[in-house]
């Protein structure tokens, strides 16, 4: 492409009609005309402003991630150089029954926590929506309070509550049930540790759900009421379909977070009894605490597998939400 002919003049640029001499401008000058004017560019300032963030992220997030992928291909030894083993460690992890059982524990835990949070937060949000300003404000703050308590402290408080003569057993005792060793019993321990998980998470879900509820135009409900729809019909035909995207958002984020939970079982049961609460990340964390070189690479690889699987899953679901939104538009 040469700039000698009239046709290459920047006619389609949408700026003011080119002056007569424009045709003779060089390619470089043309590009200059189209990019941001020089006085508005601020390379130096901009780089100084983003540098701290980018450098910190590069050192403490991006490099460790790259390094993790790199290490997962090497068998390390203490007494001789590391040896490239390709995807061997991925095979070790994926054929390890302990990894799969930890994945299964994490899945069961998530299935206890996430649906409960979703139903609970829909109920609470619908209720708070009907309240007057002051009551609503009080409840909004109240349900958010558990979310700022640390996982460690929450775990300890619930261990205290689950003691043999603790408050939970006192409560079930009112219904004539004998005291249960909640955390030492295969059949109760997972449900027992899911309660603090739910308690920590329902507040934020409720606030997000409430915001979504308030975004539904009131006129939809008025029209439905005029047609004689009762509360259940309005919920089923208006609220739930309108909340679909928020539901999916909370489902995906809640699920990916719950699948990665390990602090609650670490504090409350240390994975026991007999691995009944060893979630995937707790399994990985325990491998890391094991000091052998094999366990070190093994835990890195397992963490990467979980990250890739969960990442792909949420990406797919979010893609589905986005395209759906466009259709509804």
């Amino acid at each position: 492409m040469t700039s000698t002919t009239q046709t290459t003049a920047p006619a389609g640029a949408g700026i003011a009609p080119a002056p007569a001499g424009a045709a003779r401008l060089s390619k470089r000058q043309l590009r200059k005309m189209h990019s941001t004017p020089k006085h508005l560019r601020s390379n130096l300032t901009a780089f100084l402003m983003i540098a701290p963030l980018l450098i910190l992220l590069a050192i403490f997030v991006i490099w460790p991630l790259v390094y993790a992928f790199y290490l997962s291909g090497y068998e390390t030894y203490y007494n001789r150089p590391a040896e490239f083993v390709g995807l061997d460690f991925y095979k070790f992890v994926l054929t390890d029954p302990l990894f799969w059982s930890a994945l299964w524990v994490g899945l069961k835990y998530s299935l206890l926590v996430v649906p409960t949070i979703l139903v609970l937060s829909l109920l609470l949000a619908s209720f708070i929506k009907t309240l007057s300003g002051k009551m609503a404000a009080i409840l909004k703050t109240t349900v958010y309070v558990p979310a700022v308590v640390s996982v460690v402290l929450t775990g300890l408080v619930f261990v205290f509550m689950y003691q043999d003569s603790g408050v939970v057993n006192a409560f079930v005792g009112m219904f004539g049930i004998e005291p249960v060793a909640w955390l030492n019993n295969d059949s109760t321990v997972l449900a027992a540790i899911s309660v603090p998980g739910i308690w920590l998470g329902f507040g934020i879900s409720t606030l997000i759900m409430l915001a979504a509820l308030l975004d539904i135009p009131e006129s939809y409900y008025e029209a439905a009421s005029l047609e004689g729809a009762n509360w259940f019909q309005r919920t089923w035909y208006i609220t739930i379909p309108m909340l679909k995207n928020v539901f999916l958002y909370l489902l995906v984020t809640g699920f990916t977070l719950a699948m990665q939970e390990y602090l609650i079982p670490l504090i409350m049961t240390n994975g026991g009894p007999v691995n009944a609460t060893t979630t995937t990340n707790l399994f990985i964390f325990n491998q890391f605490r094991d000091t052998s070189a094999f366990a070190f690479t093994y835990s890195i690889t397992a963490a990467l597998i979980l990250f890739v699987v969960l990442g792909l899953l949420s990406l797919l679901i979010f893609k589905a939400i986005k395209s759906d939104k466009a259709v509804d538009g």
Binding site: F60, W63, P64, L65, Y67, Q260
Partner: peptide, 11 residues
């Protein structure tokens, strides 16, 4: 989008 556990060890 990088979860803590994936980079905990290498960090």
């Amino acid at each position: 989008f990088v979860p803590g556990m994936a980079i905990l060890i290498t960090s």
